[in-house]
Computed example of a mutant assay.
Amino acid sequence: MDHFNRLVSEQMVTMEKLLYFQAELERCQEIEEELRGLQNETKLESIQIDINQMKKELKEIQLIFEKQTEEVINSYREMNLTPIL
């Protein structure tokens, strides 16, 4: 049970990161649209670089979250298959 709880706790931390990066990405994309409207190319390029970096980090966190989900499921299954003494 401790192993399962640890896995779930780790997954919750990853979920918080995932939500943070999604919110930041949305915020940067809004700024990107504003800059396009202002046609400020220098700042637009800078925010586009930030957006691309955040997309990469978000993808990495999503992969970690998926792996953790598999581990949680496997741990839960093992817990239910192991006879309790």
Rank of each mutant, 00 (worst) to 15 (best):
Gln68Leu: 01
Leu7Asn: 01
Leu63Gln: 10
Thr82Ala: 08
Gln22Asp: 14
Gln53His: 13
Ser46Pro: 01
Val13Arg: 14
Val72Lys: 01
Glu32Gln: 08
Asp2Gly: 01
Gln22Phe: 05
Ile84Cys: 15
Ile73Phe: 10
Pro83Arg: 14
Cys28Asn: 15
Gln11Ile: 05
Gln29Trp: 05
Leu58Asp: 05
Lys55Gln: 11
Ile31Asn: 04
Arg27Val: 12
Met1Val: 12
Glu32Ser: 05
Ile61Ala: 01
Lys67Pro: 03
Met79Ala: 12
His3Met: 11
Lys17Ile: 05
Arg27Ile: 11
Ile84Phe: 14
Thr82Arg: 14
Ile73Gly: 01
Asp2His: 03
Gln11Cys: 00
Gln68Thr: 05
Lys43Phe: 07
Glu26Arg: 11
Glu30Tyr: 11
Gly37Pro: 02
Leu85Asp: 08
Glu70His: 07
Lys55Gly: 01
Met15Arg: 10
Glu45Ser: 11
Leu63Lys: 07
Lys59Asp: 00
Lys67Ile: 08
Arg36Phe: 11
Ile31Glu: 04
Leu35Asp: 01
Ile49Trp: 06
Ile31Cys: 01
Glu71Pro: 00
Glu41Ser: 09
Lys56Arg: 13
Leu58Ala: 03
Glu30Pro: 07
His3Lys: 13
Ile73Tyr: 07
Gln29Asp: 05
Glu41Pro: 00
Pro83Met: 14
Arg77His: 13
Leu19Ile: 15
Lys67His: 08
Glu57Arg: 15
Cys28Ile: 13
Met79Val: 14
Leu81Gln: 14
Thr14Lys: 07
Asn52Trp: 10
Gln53Met: 09
Leu35Met: 06
Val13Asn: 11
Leu7Pro: 00
Met12Leu: 12
Met79Asp: 03
Gln48Lys: 09
Lys17Cys: 02
His3Gln: 11
Gln68Asn: 09
Met54Val: 03
Glu66His: 06
Asn74Phe: 12
Phe4Ser: 01
Pro83His: 13
Asn74Gln: 13
Asn52Phe: 06
Ser9Pro: 00
Asp50Phe: 07
Ile47Leu: 02
Asn80Arg: 06
Gln39Leu: 10
Met54Ala: 00
Leu44Ser: 02
Glu70Cys: 03
Cys28Glu: 09
Lys17Thr: 09
Leu18Trp: 04
Ile47Asn: 03
Val72Pro: 00
Ile61Trp: 04
Asn52Ala: 09
Cys28Trp: 15
Val8Ser: 01
Gln22Lys: 10
Arg27Cys: 09
Asn74Arg: 15
Ile31Arg: 09
Gln62His: 12
Ile73Ser: 02
Arg27Met: 12
Glu57His: 15
Asp50Met: 12
Leu44Arg: 08
Leu25Asn: 03
Lys55Leu: 07
Phe4Cys: 00
Ser46Trp: 13
Leu19Glu: 11
Leu58Arg: 03
